[in-house]
């Protein structure tokens, strides 16, 4: 399905909510209401000097009740390929950008009888609307929030007043660590776990769940690692007979979109599988950075996830 960036919005507020972390408020240029969203949803934002050269997904961190504006909370990534740096350094109040309608790949499981939320640092963003929603729905939940130090991550104060005893904060500067096994061990039947944060937190939660015999169906996570930059390469499209150059800081997906061939995509984080395109010929090495393809599928070289993966070699031909 095509990722239309058909909503024009204006940046109406920028606020530093934690070190290297800014919140941006986006309102429709024509002042209309924005589409309703639910907790866990993200939008993609077209960024870059050359409008739309980069398209990054950002989780909506504001209130689902707010139909006037969306909020995204962005950490200035140290190894940014340009998206977060652009937002932090180039975007000013009043500027217009294009966004997609909300997409939700990290929703609350409606059958859950209890929800354990686990956030690390900037991974708190989806849980801002999710906690609001769970309170509205009178659902049982608890939020565990790991951060480097007091004030190092956003919204702790707000969450304290919103959640009270349901919030548990862990500061690594005080050597506080989440004991994942004891956290998961006593949870009653019907509990669902949601994790958003660094890879090691997600992997730790998955492993703790496994060690306790939790069903995989009850563990949900969102990895927000951006696509890595890499050497430029060229790709040839067999069906549309086009040759396209992929720049150093650009993803293969973005390059295809720029060329106007409307490739499929959804999560832009190598997780959902929607952007998979069959490979006809790869004279060189496919650099798979996704979490979707199995080991076997990777080594077969039959397809590539265009949103994160790259190519190094002489010739890449895709069936598209």
């Amino acid at each position: 399905m095509i990722h239309a960036h058909d909503i024009r919005v204006r940046v109406t507020a920028i606020e530093e909510v934690a070190p290297r972390t800014k919140r941006f408020r986006l309102q429709a240029v024509d002042s209309s209401h924005l589409p309703q969203f639910a907790g866990g949803a993200h939008i993609t934002v077209a960024l870059g000097d050359d409008d739309g050269a980069l398209r990054n997904p950002y989780t909506l961190s504001g209130s689902p009740q707010d139909r006037v504006g969306y909020e995204i909370t962005v950490l200035r990534a140290a190894d940014s390929r340009g998206g977060s740096a652009f937002l932090h350094e180039q975007v000013v109040l009043g500027q217009e950008v294009s966004i997609s309608a909300p997409i939700n790949l990290f929703p609350i499981n409606a059958l859950g009888r209890r929800h354990v939320l686990l956030a690390g640092g900037i991974g708190i963003t989806p849980f801002m609307p999710i906690t609001e929603q769970l309170i509205d729905l009178s659902q049982k939940f608890e939020l565990h929030y790991a951060m480097r130090s007091d004030g190092a991550a956003p919204y702790e104060t707000l969450l304290r007043s919103r959640l009270g005893h349901r919030l548990h904060v862990y500061r690594s500067d005080l050597r506080e660590r989440i004991n994942l096994e004891s956290l998961l061990e006593g949870q009653p039947l019907g509990t669902h776990l949601y994790v958003c944060g660094p890879e090691r937190l997600i992997d730790g939660a998955i492993n703790a769940g496994k060690a306790l015999g939790w069903p995989g169906e009850n563990i949900h996570f969102e990895r927000f690692a951006g696509p890595p930059p890499g050497d430029p390469f060229e790709v040839r499209l067999a069906k549309s007979s086009k040759a396209i150059a992929v720049g150093q800081h650009q993803t293969l997906l973005e390059a295809l979109e720029r060329a106007g061939v409307e490739p499929p995509s959804l999560c832009r984080g190598g997780a959902c599988g929607q952007c998979e395109i069959p490979v006809i010929k790869a004279d060189g090495e496919l650099l798979h950075y996704d979490h979707f393809l199995s080991e076997e599928a990777r080594s077969s070289g039959r397809s590539i996830m265009t949103c994160v993966s790259r190519f190094k070699g002489r010739e890449l031909v895709l069936d598209f």
């Binding site: 399905m1 239309a4 589409p35 309703q36 969203f37 309608a101 909300p102 997409i103 929607q274």
Partner: peptide, 10 residues
Amino acid sequence: KYLLNLQIDK
């Protein structure tokens, strides 16, 4: 697969 990725307002 198509429906799992159905989008709001589309």
